[in-house]
Design a protein around this nucleic acid. Structure first.
Lengths: 253, 253
DNA sequence: GTCACACGTTCGACATTATCGAATGTTCGT
DNA sequence: ACGAACATTCGATAATGTCGAACGTGTGAC
């Protein structure tokens, strides 16, 4: 692992957390001398990955990261294959549908199909949720030892609401259940008033690549079996389209 | 400028162009030994900035760049301030409205307000257009010497359609005109069938920070004066909200 | 209005660190 | 089963990034 590149990514991560930072704040956050950080930041600025805010001499992320993010979405076969199915699922169930992938120990939303009731909803593509506090996260983690390790190492599990599972053993028990049924659940563990159901998606190379799920208001929870069935069917159909021989697929390293 | 960080960004840029690349392709693209590139790529992979495609051993951008892009949009005051005005402008004119910022010598779209006719339209946030072939680009470049330099250095100007201006002198003449009127135009110079009008946005620190514009079908071109007036008014109003003392603002370094 | 502080920035010597070529392992196609 | 192309690992070299100190600049206090 190359030191300076690693540090550069750390700079971006710091800016991702605390939107706008001075050079000294960045240096303190990384535990490095200001001059060292300056060299890195200056390089990133040169490429538009970071910009210094006009006037205030604070640094923030630059337009180039937006561009990269957009290209990522375009490149992702999972997303293009999933989109039509997500629309169909939203129509059939009446709930919003999300598709996500794993990033270390968090879930990144790569597609969001709004509730079909026509109300104005925030676009949620690009947001992250801890893997241990979301149905999408549980669905993926249950089938990936690597993800389980990452979640375990991130302990103690951060509590988001009073309902968040913070006990690793309890979480591991849920993984077992998810691995058996192919459906993961979450009730107000990430956001109050919001529950969710999710199922893993597999590809031709025999492993989870993501998960798809529905977002359900607490008032409609627990949900009727047909929704659960529709979700399973959708995840299975997408996996088949991606070339997965079985569903659910095997648990991988 | 730190060499290895610079190279890391170049790797990301290469992947941005040719979506999926093998290590050798990357090495060839950067003109470096494979082992050198490997170290960089491995570091990026460790942070989820890059992922190796399952099976094929090709590399592509990772979920982390999406996350960063999303945070960038959230951080941007220009975007949040502009959004309501963009909606208003779209309603008044009946055309789609775009807001963009400059990235070296290209325009990155940071907000897209669809045509109010209710038709399904592609979300265009995150796409890029060469600054010399777009109204947004001309609007910004006319007021920034740095941008003009970048465009000049990128010459020869890439032709997108038969109408694209590829002569730098002709472009410079347009900049003069835009600087005087505060409105830039473009007729099928980027995409056939599409014309555009755009005006620069200034902030409290006396310089362009972005531009807002309307997208107009060729069939409605040239457009009636009221649209032009509405656009100027909108750009002026946003600039005032951002603290700009005058509109148009001064041309900056 | 002046002072003083804090911050970003530049510079140069040092040694840590990235780099590169060769060797190894792995995967693919024949 | 073989060969070739590719990704990956390893280790010696010196080029490179790193760090502390000095400089410049802008900001807030008195």
């Amino acid at each position: 692992m190359i030191q300076s590149v690693d540090r550069a990514v750390r700079v971006l991560s710091a800016l991702q957390g605390s939107r706008r930072m001075t050079l000294s704040e960045l240096a303190a956050a990384l535990g490095l001398p200001a001059s060292t950080v300056h060299g890195i930041v200056k390089t990133l600025v040169g490429h538009g990955m970071v910009v210094q805010e006009r006037g205030s001499s604070r640094y923030m992320l630059g337009p180039r990261v937006l561009l990269l993010g957009n290209v990522y979405l375009d490149t992702l076969e999972l997303r293009s294959r999933t989109a039509p199915w997500a629309g169909e699922l939203a129509r059939r169930t009446g709930y919003a549908v999300r598709t996500g992938v794993l990033l270390i120990d968090e879930i990144v939303i790569i597609h969001h199909e709004p509730r079909p009731d026509g109300s104005r909803q925030m676009p949620e593509v690009g947001i992250v949720i801890p893997a241990h506090a979301s149905a999408l996260g549980k669905a993926i983690t249950a089938f990936s030892a690597q993800a389980q390790k990452a979640v375990g190492e991130a302990a103690p599990l951060r509590s988001m609401t009073g309902e968040t599972l913070t006990d690793l053993a309890a979480l591991e028990a849920q993984w077992e259940e998810v691995a058996a049924t192919g459906v993961a659940a979450e009730a107000e563990e990430a956001v109050l008033g919001e529950c969710a159901l999710a199922s893993p998606i597999f590809d031709a190379f025999d492993g989870v690549v993501g998960a798809i799920g529905v977002v359900i208001p607490s008032t409609a929870w627990p949900v009727e079996p047909p929704v659960r069935e529709a979700l399973r069917e959708t995840a299975r159909a997408i996996s088949r389209e991606l070339g997965a021989p079985t569903w659910p697929g095997p648990r991988i390293a």
